[in-house]
Amino acid sequence: MLTLVESVNMALDHELDQDPEVVLLGQDIGKSGGVFRATAGLFAKHGKDRVLDTPLAESSIVGVSVGMASQGMRPVAEIQFMGFIFPAFNQIVTAVARMRNRTRGRITLPMVIRMPYGGGIHAPEHHSESTEALLAHIPGLKVVIPSNPGRAYGLLLAAIRDPDPVIFLEPKRVYRTEKQDIDNDGEAYPLESCFIDREGSDITLISWGAMMRETLQAATQMESEGVSCEVIDLVTISPIDVSTILESVEKTGRCVIIQEAPRAGGIASEIAAELSEKALLSLLAPIGRVTGYDTVMPYYRAEHRYMPNTQRIVDEIRKTMEFQ
């Protein structure tokens, strides 16, 4: 039985074993094994040429990964917290996302940038935000967020093997909350499709990452009230698997989207726009959104007020179900 962070570790270990071009790099990922222990034991097993402790410089971590990937290596970079990605944003936007396009396919970047995201662990400022929409807005990237240990394993394998850059956001709040039995069989999951975690007929709930936990809890609660929820784990927030979502909403006629990130300009908005364009006549109620608020993420004494919880999701489902 493995936790999500242990499954990340197992996937990294598997790919280090399988492919000599895979190299991990980041701050404190070597002997220390990473602040969340995602790379624990990998330095000892694979050595200093495969697991590199970098200087404390995010632009270096990403920029150096670009150079390595341009030569055919498969760097897997770790940014310690998503809140520290901003010094590397220039590299992500101006190089990572566009090298294939810039060279008309002559140079490609098979690289992964991993980072823990999201709130709920009582951390200092910049350690709790969910800014995935900023990344999803950049053409040329894939942005993937696993929600449980099994998915973290299969999706990380796929991300490392992908011929293009993948941003891999790890929901740190659920790093250790759930354990699953996972075979270390090297089987990757597709990055292009979302997962239907629960079939239902009355309403479609769409979420990703750590919020899947509360979303599934809300679905269970609503079942006792006689509401059948279909629950979709979006997984890849860019590019979005619109057809699976569309099929579900055309069936249920109702939809609530749950995200931890602020509401304005978020992924939930994008999904809602797609559905309003493509499924308007199937909709029996306005599309609901349960999100973080459009304000700065509060420090941890107040973060519980900011983050969507099961009650807020249940309230929104009820509102959507009651719409006349």
Partner: peptide
Amino acid sequence: PISIGTQLLHAAGVATA
């Protein structure tokens, strides 16, 4: 590259490879 200075880190990455 048009973005100034970014290439120097790419060069460091190539050198790392």
